[in-house]
């Protein structure tokens, strides 16, 4: 059938650039010869060796990993606590506060770049990991996601715990959190992915090559090795692999998280 042919041809078009990236990365001198080789005559890992020898690339990978893990943990904590307040702790003006929280999602990062840069410079936080982390300490998206999940947890569970003498801290930790694991998993993936792939803010705040993250270092590689495409593609492979691993493990969560966002 025609539609099936579309699916198959399209899938090849999706996969080919990935395959070509890997092939190029093991083709010494790719980009120097006029005719690209579909398979290298002498495949080698030379480009990877160059990559890790000439730039603090191992450090860059660790930077990205560390920042992604830290962002994820911090956002899980700040989102879960705020979501609990918005779901379970009534107070005057809560609706307004929640609307303000959500409105922050609409503000593009570009509007904040200049003042944020000036602010973090005043705090002496340029070229620090903390400076890279601070703007993503809280995520309105994460708060919204977890609040939806907490709203689904039956209130009878809280009430029973209250009768047993549990306070809000206990209810939060031992009743709410275990009951919203799937939403926590979804947020973990999105937070990690967001940090791992983020570009504009790290580009602005992390100028020191030792502190840079993968996307920034990759963009820099391209300037440095204008014709050594094997090295640039090796860098791309290294930067895609962890995300790919996470994707293969959590594919269901990721796709369902996105799909449900469009339904409503």
């Amino acid at each position: 059938m025609l539609l099936h042919a579309v699916v198959i041809v399209g899938a090849l078009a999706m996969l080919f650039p990935f395959a070509w990236t890997v092939i190029t990365s093991i083709t010494p001198g790719a980009g120097l010869t006029l005719r690209p080789q579909l398979w290298p005559s002498d495949p080698s890992l030379e480009a990877y060796a160059t990559l890790f020898a000439e730039r603090p690339f191992a450090r860059v990978v660790l930077n990205s990993l560390g920042l992604a893990v830290a962002t994820t943990v911090i956002q899980l904590v700040t989102s879960a606590t705020a979501a609990y307040a918005f779901s379970r702790l009534p107070f005057r003006g809560r609706g307004v506060v929640f609307a303000i929280y959500l409105a922050t999602m609409m503000v593009p990062l570009q509007v904040l770049i200049v003042p944020l840069f000036a602010e973090l410079r005043a705090f002496g936080l340029l070229n620090t990991y903390l400076g890279a982390l601070l703007p993503s300490f809280a995520s309105a998206f994460g708060i919204f996601l977890l609040r939806q999940a907490i709203n689904q947890v039956p209130r009878e569970l809280d009430e029973a715990a209250t009768l047993d003498g549990a306070g809000h801290g206990r209810i939060f930790l031992s009743i709410i959190l275990p009951n919203i694991r799937p939403a926590l998993a979804t947020l973990t993936i999105f937070a990690f992915m967001g940090s791992w792939n983020s570009f504009l803010w790290p580009l602005v705040v992390l100028r020191d090559p030792e502190l840079q993250t993968l996307p920034i270092a990759l963009a820099g590689l391209q300037g440095q090795y204008t014709t050594a495409w094997d090295v640039v593609m090796a860098g791309s492979v290294v930067s895609v692999l962890p995300m790919l691993a996470l994707y293969l493990i959590a594919q269901k969560h990721i796709i369902q998280g996105v799909a449900s966002a469009g339904l409503k």
Binding site: M14, L15, N197, F199, P215, L218, A219, V240, Q251
Partner: peptide, 22 residues
Amino acid sequence: WRGIYFLPVVTSWIVVALVWRW
């Protein structure tokens, strides 16, 4: 199939840009 088509979505813009530049 769905998984294959979603693969580029989780890839960073920088990698996508470099690969396409190539």
